[in-house]
Design a binder for these strands. Sequence first.
DNA 1: CTGAAAGCGCTTACAG
DNA 2: CTGAAAGCGCTTACAG
Lengths: 353, 353
Amino acid sequence: MSAEDSELTGVKEIARRANVSRGTVDRVIHNRTGVSQKTKDLVNAIIKELDYQPNIFARSLASKKQVVFAVLIPDVSQETNYWEAPLLGIQEAGAEISPYGITLKKYLYDVNDKNAFLEQIASIDLDGVQGVLLAPSFIEEAANFVKKLETRKIPYVFINSDIQGHNSLSYFGPDLYKSGYLSAHLIKYLVKRGEEILIVNISQEIDNEHHLLRKEQGFRNYFIENKLENPILKIDIKRTDYAYVSKSIQQVLQEHQVAAIFVTNSRVSTVAKYLKKTGDSSRVLIGFDYTKENLAFLKAGDIDFLICQKPREQGYKGLMALYQFVVHAKTGEKNNFMPIDIITSENCDFYIN
Amino acid sequence: MSAEDSELTGVKEIARRANVSRGTVDRVIHNRTGVSQKTKDLVNAIIKELDYQPNIFARSLASKKQVVFAVLIPDVSQETNYWEAPLLGIQEAGAEISPYGITLKKYLYDVNDKNAFLEQIASIDLDGVQGVLLAPSFIEEAANFVKKLETRKIPYVFINSDIQGHNSLSYFGPDLYKSGYLSAHLIKYLVKRGEEILIVNISQEIDNEHHLLRKEQGFRNYFIENKLENPILKIDIKRTDYAYVSKSIQQVLQEHQVAAIFVTNSRVSTVAKYLKKTGDSSRVLIGFDYTKENLAFLKAGDIDFLICQKPREQGYKGLMALYQFVVHAKTGEKNNFMPIDIITSENCDFYIN
DNA sequence: CTGAAAGCGCTTACAG
DNA sequence: CTGAAAGCGCTTACAG
């Protein structure tokens, strides 16, 4: 029995059937050069017929090659500790898979500095990298980078936001459209008929394909689909410092009677800070992310709702997906949208990323 | 360099230093019999000195032994599909670790039938089991079982609820006290001063150490700590069928002016069904778990809040903890309390276990 | 383009 | 109580 079983599987059996050596089978399996097309075809046919699954224990034992994954995400900044959470998830997954010979190389960049992003990309030595986990903060630049990865056949996974039309292994992050849509749903409960609503995009990078705009679109479409007639204003603020943001907000609020403000990212704390200063807390304020700044304003009642989308889990699952693919040749779902958690001052103490 | 490195590690090096064979080192590592105390001590000292970490690839390649985990949880019943979620998480983790030679054996029991629980326990062949994941639904019986596991040195992990004072490897589930506490916090917002509140425990098993009582305690303590003067009634219903539950509820509601009802488990749908039938929707109703029955009543407005505690994740993480310990000798946190998610009709469509 | 042999770091019989 | 040898299923050099 067991002798029979063992004959029916493994490189040895493939070699026996193909009448070649195990070395040659190995060459075919790993797509190495130096095998005649004829032998290659034969071996591949047998591999298929046997539904051969390599023994990953034997493989990693024999090949002392280390698998290296590059991680390209924003650094924690003074303005926000948002990226602490994905990094934590990445480190958690990294610790879990380190016994299998996987090493991480981290490339952290300033989310407000496109050049820093490009510099980090340039500093990655792709020769030694079997996979990349990245947050494509700068869309055009990230798109160029992943094109390079594709030609080199290096798999990559997006977290936090994705770039549509690219061939990533998978994506772990919000369904941007839906989070905007849900925000609108929440705000609907809190404004009266006809009251004005303000959408605020705060980012140095706002262009046609930016992901904030996909949230905005979801938000607007909720009102359209539900035939709600509240006027929707919007303002794009292209600097993130408090002075600039507060001035911009002040201006709009002077000119309009705004009942609710929807900030499309974690910068909501900057707006909250301004509103708190004016002492006017009559407006509803909704934004994103469980950062420590936002949390303080949420607890103080200056922010009404925070929408969170499992930043830790994005990092954890993103890296695991890369591992499953590279080491076990397993592919999961391509798009993995995180749940949309609604955090209020009531449940915030119990929230876990 | 590399020759030097390889000399400094592994069984081979330990054997060399101890002046014994690799076989003997192996015997010591696995605590097998047939080694003199002197040799044992010497080898152990060297293992410690070298901080020896076995190569799990080589180990599983050489030892064709399969690792088996037993999973002992309730079956999905007609009354509730709650246990679908933990099972899903367990299967997910099972698929992830199956390449490492881990097999699961599932023992599902009827949550209303203590004998079924005992029968399943009896049918587990502990000789072939390296770890157990269990939900200790029947406390005394489960306690006896884990005592047996302890004498046999088989590690076990609790999910969903734990038994205090036992030496489980870890626990993944709610902080029962806190979920009761948070429920009280929510209800506080929804009742007026002095209005009566009803606590409902529905379970065939309600005794002094039952976990529903820990929720009740958290609930009561919130009111005490915050010096709220709402009268709190409570009723223990020891059968789970609709006819019996509805009659019990009817009786209390006839005698008391109840403004809010807190059901301490997923049976809240049974209460919702009754209230819906009476056509009286003036009372606030809070309960637990994202079952399909509860969800329907939540959407219809018959249940106001559901508290959920990541049932899928409990299963997933519980099994992974067992794996990490048995295969990698890694121990994590002992108590892993799940976040307390508040589900309303607004966000229920976006909830993920 | 291909094969034969050694080796990865363990465990498993078997022999004494 | 202990050791020498073979083997797990792959990959890696080396030789031709």
